[in-house]
Design a protein around this nucleic acid. Structure first.
Ligand SMILES: [Zn+2]
Length: 252
DNA sequence: TATGCCGGGGT
DNA sequence: ACCCCGGCATA
């Protein structure tokens, strides 16, 4: 029952907190070197896909990443191909809420972040301040617009613009109780849905517990040479930044 | 608006 | 190899 899920979630949590891929550095007296999952991931992606337009081959002093001891099975379902990094015709990127039983899809990342902050995290202050935690609760998806353009103008499923301040229907702490609501609609007759359902449960438990255990901490601004030194001191930028390539002095 | 940077040019 | 920039995604 739920106790098993809690144990599983707690196990995943502790393994996360002792691995290099920590949610937050935990207790952070020396705060600045914090990385979010996304940043760590994108770093490992770029190191593996070798975005090396490189001008020098003898200076590659980074052999191979030591591949963190975290079991891939516990992470792959959260990180499935976030951005295919290519633009395609009539493919629009949308942002989908990952919260249990919430299939909300919005067109902007700021919109989905507000959605998560207000209705799931129970932060009813509608300030635009992002506490860097919303990233774990939504994902980017691609939607083919051509398949939708048939017979529209009759439906307006969600208002994409920043119009309606959403009703604050769940009071705070509803996220904790919401994770107990699972399985209300037991009509999922897919054969393989059992495994993914369990993973989803673990996922939402990990998110909930981490949300409970870890303090809120703002996202570290990724300052690169341009912003650090400014346009007037362009000669202090690293070569890549001067050539409008990916910065290599400040890597995330 | 500004920043980061890919793709595509030059020399 | 070294350098530059249009244009785009993103905040
Ligand atoms: Zn740089």
């Amino acid at each position: 029952g739920h106790a098993d899920k809690e144990v599983m979630a707690a196990t995943v949590l502790t393994s996360l907190s002792t691995s290099p891929l920590v949610l937050y550095p935990s207790s952070v007296p020396t705060e600045p070197a914090s990385k979010t999952w996304k940043e760590v991931l994108s770093a490992s992606y770029s190191s593996s896909t070798s975005g090396n337009w490189s001008w020098d081959a003898s200076d590659q002093s980074v052999p191979s990443t030591p591949s963190p001891p975290l079991s891939k099975d516990s992470t792959h379902f959260m990180f499935e191909d976030p951005i295919p990094r290519k633009r395609k015709n009539s493919m629009k990127v949308m942002f989908k809420c990952l919260w249990k039983n919430c299939e909300k899809v919005l067109s902007t990342s700021s919109g989905i972040q507000r959605h998560i902050r207000t209705v799931h995290l129970g932060r009813n202050s509608d300030s635009d301040y992002s506490d860097g935690e919303e990233d774990f609760y939504y994902s980017e998806i691609e939607v083919n617009m051509d398949s939708l353009t048939e017979g529209l103008s009759s439906l307006t499923p969600t208002s994409p613009t920043t119009a309606g301040p959403p009703p604050i229907f769940p009071p705070p702490l509803s996220d904790v109780s919401r994770s107990e609501y699972v399985g209300v609609n037991g009509s999922q007759s897919h054969t393989s849905s059992l495994l993914s359902q369990s993973l989803d449960d673990v996922f939402v438990h990990v998110l909930t517990l981490s949300h409970l255990l870890f303090p809120r901490k703002p996202r570290g601004e990724a300052k690169k040479c341009r912003k650090v030194y400014g346009m007037e001191k362009r000669d202090m930028w690293c070569t890549a930044c001067r050539w409008k390539k990916a910065c290599q002095r400040f890597t995330d």
